[in-house]
Structures are given as structure tokens and as C-alpha cells.
Design a protein around this nucleic acid. Sequence first.
RNA 1: GGCGGUAUCGUCUAGGGGACUAGGACACGGCCCUCUCAAGGCUGGAACACGGGUUCGAAUCCCGUUACCGCUACCA
Length: 489
Amino acid sequence: MAPSVPRLRFAPSPTGYLHVGGARTALFNWLYARKFGGQFLLRVEDTDKARSTEESTRAIFEGLQWLGLEWDEPVVHQGANLERHRADAQRMLANGTAYRCFCTQEELAQRRAAAEAAGAAFKYDRRCDRLDRVEVERRVAAGMPFTVRFRVPEGSTSWDDLVHGTIAFLNKDIEDFIVLRTDGTPIYNLAVVSDDIAMAITVVMRGDDHISNTPKQIQLYRALGAELPVFAHLPMIHGMDGKKLSKRHGATAVGDYQHLGILPSAMMNFLALLGWAPGNDIEVMSREQMIELFDPSGLQKRAAIFDLKKLEWMNGQHLALISPDELLQRALPALVAAGYGSAEEIMARREWVFSLLELLKVRSRTIDEIVWQAAPYFNEQIELDAEAVRKQWKDRALTEAILRGALEVLSPLTEWNLTSTEAALNQLAARLDLVEKPGKLYQPLRVALTGRAVSPGIFEVLVVLGRKRAQQRLEAALLRLRQDEPTPD
RNA sequence: GGCGGUAUCGUCUAGGGGACUAGGACACGGCCCUCUCAAGGCUGGAACACGGGUUCGAAUCCCGUUACCGCUACCA
């Protein structure tokens, strides 16, 4: 059983960005630790120097931080533990659970090819384990290079997986695997076990592509005299075509979603639901609720398919939940990038921005959509959408009457708010006999005020625009209408 | 090939022997609300991979088959 204070770790290899599958694995590790009062640690598996990069390490940290998956102790770099890995291999050599193998890579490749040609499965034949002590010593003295191989014992290896239940392997199906290379560097399975023991990891939660590594690792724990952790193997994430999620499916890095205008809380919520369900038909959750409701027994065994549409819906739900402050904080960089002003300028109009965001977020699924919709309110000049103009300003005489009339009823207002502008426009509607057809009145106005056929309610637009700009836009529209006048078809 | 894993609507899932004419959500269609677009409400179509058992009774348990996925390196 898991001890009372569980320790878990997320152990990515820094060979790319933080993949959504990795992010979900990290998320479940984190949830488990938070739920049961344990620790969540981070270990960078950078033993593969050729493929590991600093940049990738940084990208992974950033992705985790963006999601809010804070780790509790300094990051462990696997590459720094080489001496311990080596010492552990020596320990196994000394206690007889491993042996030296002098077969070269070429010989092995040859035998493997021969076996395959004969239609048989290749498995190391243990020839070096049969060398007598004298011969081994002679070869070592002669400086012959060797690897260290683990001697897999008879019998079977099984464990009670937290998500799959009991999984068992026959040891005869596991070959004597190499644990230390000729150059004295460790193979993955040794490095992982050695580090997990050193970090006192009690729950190893990882992708189910590691299931077949697990019996080997269990043997290693035993050979090193260490207590076994609890294993939990999480399913993978697939793309819409049911294949393993890859670049072909579009964005796979969590950073991509950040730039698409997804909220971290929505991303977390969505990822959590991909492979776990709290039950009771609960779907939208804050991070606190997720921790509260998390239960490893609800972990899914089956690979899930990443559905962008649902992520977007989820984001819309979270947009509705977050505070104006948080929304502004998350949207600010995108607002600046869109050219709406400097961060200082935008923050100076904080209250106004709050009210604008409040109007736009309900009609948006992502921050990017909010930014796009915000253009007519931040920019001095608006672009008239040609399609909207064509459709809504079709009747030029009526449009002119509406614009002129709006200017007339709006100008004398002493108060400029939702109720006063509504009253004024109602008056205009009556005058133009459009009370029964409000769309005929409001749509042309909407185009004049925002340049678009879609916007928040017209009175809200008037208020957020402010009297001055609203009037300027109506006048500009009138002008534009006259310029375009001589266009009889 | 060998070994391992998985199998409920298109997708995410609820379900853990009778409460199932299988529930919810996304997506899709319709209706309502409505100045547009959203949001919201209501509503429709849509699934237990197949075959055998066990049982009075199976989506739920067991065994096969099939399909898909993973591993099978001196990669991680």
C-alpha cells in the first residue's frame, strides 16, 4: 500500500516541447500528490545528450508553470546522477544479480538478424553468463569492453497496477537486459529505478507505453534491495483519427494552446476529463474542485481522443468563471500584440476594459476571439465589413434616415447610459415606424458603430463606445453613405 | 512473430448482475428567448465490437475471436 505521504514525479525527457499527453500525465501526478497531501517532483531525463536540449527543458518548465503544476522540490537532472547509476550496476555485479557481457553490438545485431531470418524471436542466449570466473577475469584484465546485463530470474513478475489491476509477465519472456553500456553509462531502466529509489518515489504514475518496462524495473528494485512503489499506468492520447497524437493532428504542445487563447484552468479541466471522470455528471471544475474530487479509481484504462471542439467549449465555460482581473491579466499580452495600445495604456483604462471584456467574453470561446471582437472599441478607425454593409445598408434612403435620426435623438441626451439610449432609440423607432421591426433599425446602426454585423447589444455598444465616439461613427457612416451614393446598378 | 494492454453514441464518459425502453457532456439538427452574434432553456437523431458460456437475470463476471494501441535497442 502507498505510505501516508506519497511522493510522485513527472519525468519528461527534454527532446521537444511539453506534449499534451505529457501534460496530462503531469496533471494526474500533481492531482494525486495534492489530493493526498504528498509531494510532486520533477525530474528531467536528460541522459540522452544527443537529443536533449536546454531550450526544450525550458519549454517544459514553462508549460508546467503555465498550467500551474508547481513542483515541490528542486528539479532533479538525471544526467547528474551518473555515478550513482554506475555504483548501482556495480552493486548488482557484486551481489550476483547481474553479470558482465562481452558480446559486441555487431555480434548481437548479427545474431538477431539470423534469428529473425529463421523466423524466431531473438532473445539473448546468456552465453556470457556461462563464462567461468577465470575467463571473465582474464577478459577484464585484458581490457575487453563489456556491458552489464541483468540476470532475469525464473518465475513471473506481477504487480497490482493502480489503473489496470493485476498485470503479470512470465520471466521467460523477458531477456537478460543490459543495464550499463560499454562506456559505463546507464540504460533507461536502470537510471529510472536508481533515481526513483533515491528520490523515495512511492507512486510511479506514467504513460502505459511503460507497462512492458515495469517487470524489468521491478526486478531491478529487488536486486537493489529497495521497496517497490505503487505503479499506475495512464493511457495515451490519440488524435481524431484514433492514431497517437502527433504533429499531423495540429497543435500538440501545451504552449500552442496558450497562444491560441486557451485558459490554463480550461486546459487542465479538459485534460483531466480525458482519462478521468469524477462521476455525478460533473464536468466543469476549478482546480480546487479537481483536487477535491480526484480519485484514482476513476482513472480510465482506455486511450482518449483529443477533441478540440470540446476544449473550446470548456474554455468558454472557464471564461465565464474567472474574475475580471484574471481575464485581463491573461488577455493583456494579446491585446497589446493586436496593437490596441501598450500595457500601460490599457491598464490605465482598467475599468472600461473590464466592462468591455465582460461584454465580449460571453460571445467568445477563446481569448483570441475576444481580442478580435475588441477591435472596434479599442481602435479609433473601424473597418467596414463589406458583406455587412451590402446587406444592412441596402436601402440607402432608410439607412440615411436612421443614421440622421439616431444622431438627432441621441444628441440631446443629458445622461448617456443603457436606459437613456434605449429610450431615445425607441423614440426613433416609433418615428420611422420600425417598432415592429427593430432589426431594421438596429442592424444598420450596428454596422455604422462597429463596422460589423455582429456585436454586443446595441445599447451596450453605445455605452462602451461613449457618446463622442458613437456620434463620430454615425457621422462618418453618413459621410461614407453619401460618397458611395452614385452607384445605381 | 512474441509479450502486454484496451474495447458503451462521431468524440469524452456514467454504469461496477436486476433501478437500462443505457444517463450526462461536446459536436450536429429543431424549437424557445431575441436588435445581430453568443450565452441560456427545451428537444431530436446517435452506442453496450462479435461469438460462446456462468446466472432466474449480463453493458456489467469468465473464455475465445476480431480490431486497435504499446513494448520487443549498448533510445527514453
